[in-house]
Amino acid sequence: MARLNRTGYGRSAVLLLTGAYFLVPIACAIAFSIGIGAPRQALGFEAYTGIFGADGFTDSLTLTLKLAAATIALVLVLLVPALVTVRLAAPRLRTLVEIVCMLPLVVPAVALVAGISAVLRWGPDHFAGTPLFQAMAALQAPQFPMVLVLAYTLMALPLAYRTLDTGFAAIDLRVLVEAARSCGAPWPHTLIHVVLPNLRGALLNTAFLTLALVLGEYTVAAVLGYQPFAVWIVATSGSQAQMSVAVSMVGLLVTWMLLLLISAAGRARRPKENS
């Protein structure tokens, strides 16, 4: 009994320390954002209420959400068919695909953006007057910089691969696909009606992780001169420090809520018949 009590105390201590590690900085940030501890400043929620009216907030958030949606779509369009192919038709390529997907882990964002910058500078000199020049210009269009989507897709590959691979490992893909095919389903229908619904949890997790990555990514966008949400927060912190912290807190809260929603959606089953 005494040993059990000691174990209980030990667990509580670890929990307390871990909680403090996460919660103290958040509490300090919230305190700062509402003016606690700042001399000659009244307490208030102006930093929060003024977020939506802040200059550049809506534009940067809209751009980030559009980039996130495009990145999620591209990651899934690339990885789901690739993993289905690797598992069904070319199992020998599995290691290669895994290595390729994990490669961005060892390439720092700064190195990645340095490479992208070099290509973008070098390209126009060589392709002037060709369709490729137009394509490179379109990639960098300020209203929707596709080049960021490509970079974010690369950066999201390791997380997306792991999550999707775990999802695939949890189902008997070959049997499900063959059962669907023997029921007269062509490949696209098999993917849409059988494979994807059984990967719902993995797809949602992939989408969430990619969204979180895009929401928080700063280096690539800043170096390339775009101003999505993370870059806007940093830029705002110079002139409106409290608001930039407030925005970060709201972002954190929204991310947690999304995580809970995705977790709940992953567990829920469809109770009604749909045939």
Binding site: I171, D172, V175, L176, E178, A179, A180, C183, G184, A185, P186, H189, H193, V194, P197, N198, R200, R269, R270, E273, N274, S275
Partner: peptide, 22 residues
């Protein structure tokens, strides 16, 4: 099939009707 091959996200009747839906 040898292993259980029903689509886990569908009810029994949806499974049977799958081919007809296709």
């Amino acid at each position: 099939f040898q292993s259980y091959s029903l689509f886990p996200h569908m009810t029994a009747i949806d499974n049977v009707a799958f081919g007809l839906r296709m």
